[in-house]
């Protein structure tokens, strides 16, 4: 009996913690079917499907969601491109100033968002740049690049150099080697990085808040609504995001083996590991 407990208490604690981590999602999903008693109420009142049938009843919110998606897509494309190029340089080439570049990539991940947000604000104000859609994009690319570098780097440095040598040995030129061997093998890492960049961008509030001007993204809309009263459709968006994430992440992870699971964890795991970053 003692042995049985000793073997299982860790799992028991883990499940409790998972419950703690999942509770808000359950509540969000529940509230998406709620007709609140008043605008400022956060309590469950009455079941309804209205929020799901009319997700854009509050048109401001849907505008904000669309804007967040636009920003997210642009920031993802740009940061994935820049970050992937840097990752290739770091893993595949020797150059002077490696420590400096590593520092430049590591520091944004170790700096509080608040400091990055306020400093960009100070720069834009000093330079007289009007804040809005594009300043948000600039900020998002800035904080996404490092995460992309780390993610792609992890995949790239795990790749066997011999595969490329073998391709060259089999009459593939540098470009053909890249196109036929390197790119297909690194692609899962690049996709994971892009997914990470998009979710970071879509969900960012602090940095955006300092650099948005009058532009409203989804997190900013939620923040503003928290003071005025939250429309229940916010929970519909929240639940839908969770469902999409489950489909994307869940499908690929449950089907895949170790490699895919590693791709899922690698970005977050690699980010903070001081050794891998510096």
């Amino acid at each position: 009996m003692r042995r049985w407990i000793a073997d299982r208490w860790v799992m028991g604690v883990a499940l409790l913690v998972l419950g703690y981590l999942s509770l808000p999602i359950v509540v969000v999903a529940g509230l998406s079917f709620n007709r609140p008693s008043s605008r400022l109420s956060y309590d469950f009142n009455e079941f309804t499907l209205d929020n799901w049938t009319q997700p854009c009843a509050t048109s401001d919110m849907c505008d904000a969601v669309v804007r967040s998606m636009e920003i997210g897509l642009i920031a993802t494309v740009v940061s994935t491109l820049l970050g992937t190029l840097m990752a290739f340089a770091l893993v595949r080439h020797g150059f002077r100033g490696r420590a400096g570049i590593n520092g430049l990539i590591f520091l944004p991940m170790a700096t509080p968002e608040l400091v990055m947000g306020t400093s960009l604000l100070a720069l834009f104000v000093a330079a007289g740049v009007p804040q809005g859609f594009w300043t948000i994009v600039i900020a998002h690319v800035m904080f996404c690049v490092s995460f992309v570098v780390v993610t792609v780097k992890a995949r790239l440095s795990g790749m066997d150099r011999r595969l490329e040598e073998a391709a060259m040995d089999l009459y593939a030129s540098e470009w053909q080697t890249f196109r036929r061997i390197t790119l297909p093998l690194v692609l899962p890492g690049i996709m994971a990085a892009a997914l990470l960049a998009f979710s970071l961008s879509f969900d960012d509030f602090i940095i955006t808040n300092f650099n948005a001007g009058t532009t409203v993204t989804f997190p900013m809309y939620v923040w503003g609504a928290a003071q005025r009263g939250i429309p229940p459709q916010v929970n519909v968006i929240g639940t839908a995001m969770f469902a999409i994430a489950l489909l994307l992440v869940g499908a690929s992870t449950l089907r895949g083996r170790r490699a895919r699971r590693a791709a899922l964890v690698a970005p977050v795991a690699a980010v903070g590991t001081p050794k891998s970053a510096s």
């Binding site: 999602i25 969900d203 509030f205 929240g238 969770f242 994430a245």
Partner: peptide, 12 residues
């Protein structure tokens, strides 16, 4: 759950 906006989750 990380893919749901953290503001929405905090409000929960």
């Amino acid at each position: 759950p990380q893919f749901t906006s953290f503001l929405v989750r905090t409000l929960a």
